[in-house]
Simulated scan of single mutants.
Amino acid sequence: MATAWFGPSPDWILKHRTEHPSAKTILLTGATGGIGLAVARRLLSSPDEHLLILTGRNAEVLRQFQREYPDRVRAVQCDMADLGQVAGLVRQCEVHGSLDALILNHGTLGKCLRLAQMEGDKGEEWERVFKVNVTSCVVMISEALPWLRQTKGRIIFTSSGAAQNAYPSWGAYGASKAAINHLTMTLKNEEPDVTTVAIRPGVVDTAMQKDIRESFLSNMDERDQQKFRSAKEEGKLLPPEKPGNVIAELAVSAERELSGLFIR
């Protein structure tokens, strides 16, 4: 789906960066729905004319972004469980000569099984969730670090309150997000020139919340079932633009003192 460069020719990007010195080159995962879609729209509406490399599950949304912003968007389909594809995704940046931010917004809730329900699974469900939610991020970061060091760039993770609050049947998901928070702290210590932040977005009106209500409530405790059901019924879910706009701004301008933090 992607071409080899932004704009109609390899020379275009040099002109763009000269005319728009505040423009950032940003790679965003999970860009086709919910929070990621809100992040992409916020960044593309900026007068700074940011350049985006987008990936997500919905190919039609990716194509629409490419149609609307043919010079400023590169849409790349990628299976986040395929680590070879993930590494290749970051290499798309090489032809552009710069990467200012990596927004790691993708993730899976998994099958929402309690530990006692995994007899015979041999850990395959946990391995799958961790591959998508954690290992793919590690692979992408390791590929991106040489570029991010050059720009003193930023890594922004979409984490979750489940990293700190355990819900029955959410063990794999919650543990994977806790691992992301620890990865954030590790990167602060290992990569002092790169600002790394994990965000707790809150309870947001996304497809994931719909999946929870329609497919996964039965395996949760009664109290938690009521919590997630009533959040939608009572209009307590945040619009994706609330956390999405914050994540977009952090990718562009997060201060160094935020590095290593899990913030709400």
Rank of each mutant, 00 (worst) to 15 (best):
K188L: 12
D79A: 07
T3H: 14
L115T: 09
L115F: 15
H50W: 14
G97A: 00
G88E: 13
W170I: 00
R114C: 13
P146S: 14
A248W: 15
S22T: 14
Q226H: 14
G161N: 12
K152W: 05
V76L: 03
Q209N: 06
V138S: 05
Q92T: 05
E249K: 13
V197L: 03
E94A: 15
E127I: 09
H96T: 10
V134M: 01
T135W: 15
G36E: 00
R213M: 12
A2D: 03
A116R: 05
R213V: 11
P47N: 10
S98C: 14
L27S: 05
V246N: 09
K152E: 08
Q66P: 02
I141H: 04
V39N: 10
L83F: 15
H20V: 03
K152R: 03
D48F: 00
Q64G: 06
S215D: 11
L113M: 11
Q77I: 05
V204T: 10
L43H: 09
D193R: 11
F130V: 06
K177R: 12
W5V: 04
N181A: 12
S218K: 13
G56H: 05
G36C: 06
E60H: 13
Q209H: 12
A40M: 03
E222V: 12
I247E: 07
K188M: 09
F216Y: 10
E249G: 06
D71Q: 13
V203G: 05
Q225Y: 15
R72P: 04
K227I: 00
R42S: 11
T186V: 08
L27M: 04
N189I: 02
Q64L: 06
Q225F: 10
L115W: 15
V252E: 04
W5K: 07
R223Q: 10
R154Y: 00
G107H: 14
I212P: 09
G260F: 06
T151F: 01
L109Y: 14
D224A: 08
D11S: 08
V132F: 06
L238M: 01
T55H: 06
L261P: 11
L14K: 15
N133I: 01
T206G: 09
F262N: 09
K232T: 01
A38S: 12
K227A: 06
E119V: 12
A175Q: 11
N189C: 00
